[in-house]
Amino acid sequence: MLRKISTLLLSTLVAGVIIVFLLSRVWDELLITLHEADPRYLLAATLICLLAWYMRGIRYRYILMRLSVCVSTTFSTACIFVSQTANLIIPARLGDLIRLLILRHEKETTYTVGFSSLIVERVFDIITIALIGAIALPFVVGQTPWFSLLIGLVLIAGLLFFLVLFISGRFTSENRILAKIFEIMAQIRSVSLTPPALVYLLFSSVIIWIIDCLVCVMVAMMFGETVPIMVIVLAIVIGNLVKAVPITPGGIGTYELALAMTFELAGVAPGIAVLIAIVDHLIKNLVTLGGGALSVYYFGDWTLSLLKRAFSGDIRGELRDRD
């Protein structure tokens, strides 16, 4: 228990130090800019963020349908909301595992089905982000070479993943662990490796991340800043790729640092860059928390107990049980 608490405190401390560092550099400029902010764009950003969540729910419903799990869009959206809310307080993205237990409890699915659905969602998110970033790169002046390296490595990793996914269908194994891995690979292939499914998942993922970028556009406009759209796109891409490495809960601190750094490299004033980064993530996290609270009410009180077990680390023990 002490080790679990220490891990949580350390990751939270890292997030806090980064945020304080960013604020301390531009505090006076931040106060002036906040005073002049237009709240109408804040409302627009919040509504757009909600739309992105709804689109995520539609995509996840499709993924589950391909795995022969029939749910409503409300159910699929609520499922994502609960797991992402948990990720805001639990290190190492262990909140994602909550989704497996929700599907098991509500739809009597196996853990492998839940895990496969999660992998498909994550893979298409990461690959889509990298593709959008690759398109934005040539239009952004001042970006550093490691941006290209990071995006290129992600795209290569995605290509290798699909290559392994394709050839894994030729293998079988009597080993229980390998057999389970091949089962998950087969489920992922059934979801994503047909032309209609590939087109649907890529198209819906592109829409989701364009909407996510529009939230940041509204935040910039709220502070009266005209930031080139490709700069915002690249910042969101770099921020989410950095956020994918679970250093802090919900990527708090690391996401803001990546966004602010990208904005500054592209010529945005430091104060504005920090403010846009912090408010953008704050809106997305508050919408996540609000949606998570409503989703707990939607699923019932048992999900509160589930969140408590996830926070204490007991959730991993439950997932070790056989399907």
Results as ranks from 00 to 15, higher is better:
S6G: 14
S11G: 10
L13T: 15
L23M: 12
S24R: 10
S24M: 01
W27Y: 15
E29W: 03
L30D: 08
T33H: 10
L34A: 15
E36L: 14
E36N: 15
D38L: 05
D38I: 04
R40F: 05
R40I: 12
A45E: 11
A52S: 13
R66F: 08
L67S: 04
R93L: 00
L94R: 07
G114P: 07
I119P: 08
E121M: 02
R122F: 07
F124S: 06
T128Q: 06
A134T: 08
F139H: 10
V141H: 07
G142A: 06
T144L: 01
T144K: 09
F162Q: 13
V164N: 11
Q187D: 02
I188Y: 00
R189L: 05
V191F: 04
L201R: 14
I207L: 10
V215I: 03
C216W: 09
A220S: 13
M222Y: 00
V227M: 00
I232R: 00
V233F: 09
V233R: 04
N240G: 09
T248D: 05
P249G: 01
E264G: 13
V274S: 10
I276N: 13
I283H: 09
V287R: 05
G292H: 05
G292D: 09
A293V: 07
Y298C: 09
F299K: 09
D301P: 13
T303Y: 07
S305R: 08
S305Q: 05
S305H: 06
E318V: 02
